[in-house]
């Protein structure tokens, strides 16, 4: 098997994640889908690392994880405060961008 298959898998997961972001209304699930997309990227990075024979890809993936962790912390805090004020975690309820 050619390890390039990992890349195909990564793009598949990424696309599924993206579709999830677009389809789901629950902010928590949307957030999970974002995490799925990040993980797909990480998989691709790890595969690239293997492809090139150096560890830079893994470093980037590592940083991605750290950033993702930070993002999750802040994002979930936002969801919690949104839920507290609106009693809903639906992203469609916050449609205040419309004039």
């Amino acid at each position: 098997m050619n390890p390039v298959n990992y890349l195909y898998l990564a793009s598949l997961l990424f696309t599924i994640g993206a579709a999830g972001v677009l389809i789901r209304r629950n902010a928590i699930v949307v957030f999970m889908c974002v995490e799925l997309m990040l993980n797909a990227c990480n998989l691709a990075l790890v595969t690239f690392s293997r492809m090139h024979g150096n560890l830079d890809g893994q470093i980037i993936a590592f940083f991605t994880m750290v950033v993702a962790a930070a993002e999750v912390v802040v994002g979930l805090a936002i969801i919690v405060s949104l839920f507290r004020s609106r009693h809903s975690a639906s992203v469609d309820d916050a449609s205040l961008m419309k004039l």
Partner: peptide, 17 residues
């Protein structure tokens, strides 16, 4: 055209995607 600006973040996300 204004209907495109429906205020739903998901719609905007579709455009971005």
């Amino acid at each position: 055209l204004r209907k495109l600006q429906n205020g739903y973040a998901r719609s905007y996300a579709v455009s971005m995607f």
